[in-house]
Amino acid sequence: MKFLIVDDSMTARLIGRKTFESLGHTVLEASDGQEALTVLATQSPIDVIILDWNMPGMNGFTCLENIRKISALNRTKVVMCTTEAEKMSVIKALQAGANGYLLKPVLPDKLKQGVEKALGTSLS
């Protein structure tokens, strides 16, 4: 599978890369929403996007709304991975088309489980 980790935090991207590469998957990175859309336009198909919310430039929620307007990405799963812990934020993201919602901090196990839940299948 091909993953895209979208986060302005180098640490979060590192954890994502470590998690999914160790399971034999391909990992791409972007540091904000606009860069993510550029990667998606040139690197499709991406199977899973791990998306932070609070980023400089285009934030994760706006990025999610843009992703869900692209019909070619209908089957791409989006898992929000963020510090936005408010219930309304979770509802807003799920209503906008997120397939999962993880609260930071996350380590590889929690990230893997969150993605598996969104996919409905095991990654390993």
């Binding site: 640490t11 510090t83 812990a85």
Partner: peptide, 15 residues
């Protein structure tokens, strides 16, 4: 990491 720690503390507090 220090930025992420600040982000996590404030993000949770915000809720």
């Amino acid at each position: 990491i220090v930025g992420e720690l600040a982000n996590i503390i404030v993000g949770r507090a915000k809720s």
